[in-house]
Write a protein that binds this DNA or RNA. Sequence first.
DNA 1: CAGAGCGCTGGCCGATCGGTCAGTACCGTG
DNA 2: CACGGTACTGACCGATCGGCCAGCGCTCTG
Lengths: 185, 185
Amino acid sequence: MSLHDQLRTVALAEFASAGYAATSLQRIADLAGTSKASVLYHFSSKEQLLAEIVDPVLDDLERLLIDDEGGSVLRRADFVERFVDLLLTHSQVVPLVINQGATLDDVPVMHRATELMRRVAELFRLASGSTIEKLRFGVAFGGVAYTLAAAERLGLNGEIPIDEVRTALLEILHDLLVPADTLTA
Amino acid sequence: MSLHDQLRTVALAEFASAGYAATSLQRIADLAGTSKASVLYHFSSKEQLLAEIVDPVLDDLERLLIDDEGGSVLRRADFVERFVDLLLTHSQVVPLVINQGATLDDVPVMHRATELMRRVAELFRLASGSTIEKLRFGVAFGGVAYTLAAAERLGLNGEIPIDEVRTALLEILHDLLVPADTLTA
DNA sequence: CAGAGCGCTGGCCGATCGGTCAGTACCGTG
DNA sequence: CACGGTACTGACCGATCGGCCAGCGCTCTG
């Protein structure tokens, strides 16, 4: 693995666990066995290092949203499944965006993340009417995202195989969202 | 309101929205119309200012946990209701702990918060067995906490009366946790 | 061999941070 | 009036941050 990739990997792990603000370029350099100046050689700034980590994931999310808009009737189960897979695939970026998105929305890439989350929320708001429907969607997706984000730091991780988690999360989401389906159908 | 209380109020709002690390003592002083030195006169350090904000809430949560341990069969519906009320009452502290707890666990008061959250999680792990049961609890409570935390920053707030939110959240939690009840009964 | 370019580095910069301290204005009390 | 304590302040401190830059060693190429 090139130093460039290694720096990105190390930075992601530190950003997710210790926080973006609390992670200095010096620490990233130390963990990768190089110098701070070399980090800034590979990435023109700390913000751009963050962007290079987060942007690809946001591209995936945006693709998912565009597919859904286009089809207009993309089946909800498909969307849910693809969304869960996206969260599971990028298990390190999720807590980074979820927990620190609010704090860092002056950073362009995090602002983009917030906007995409708003579009997801909007998508559900349009698809539902009553207060309880909106909250049901919020709890469902917020709950899944936060559960994945919190699992690692509370030490509840590693003991459960990913396939089992995926199946369980899909079933829980199904239980939560099915009442909404029956209403809008 | 005394300057002491005003500083605590201003600091809480900034810590919750902009983040603890990103909020300087100078900014808190400016917002309260005083000097940085006077902030450090009222609170011996920035950490102690945070502690004076968060500790009372953690006291409430700890009381809730102790009551539950003591009774050993405190009815689950009661616990859920008290927990939701606690989240709704401290609507500013919740996002602070939820979103920044991981980043700040070297700060004593945030470490205490993490420990209490772990005890809540443990309480549910003991009460349930299978993977899906554990995840169901995680999604339920994480979802409610995160929904409250995210509502404000995504601009989904203010338009829904609190009573309605409370009722809806309790119903959603009931839907999610009832399957668990029927299994453990 | 000359030299252009790439990867990388140590040393430095200005800005900002949390925190300290001597000192000031004002207060109620003897 | 004298004085002890409370509330508060401006000036300053050391540390750390992100970022900049001149220059290093190395490789490839004409």
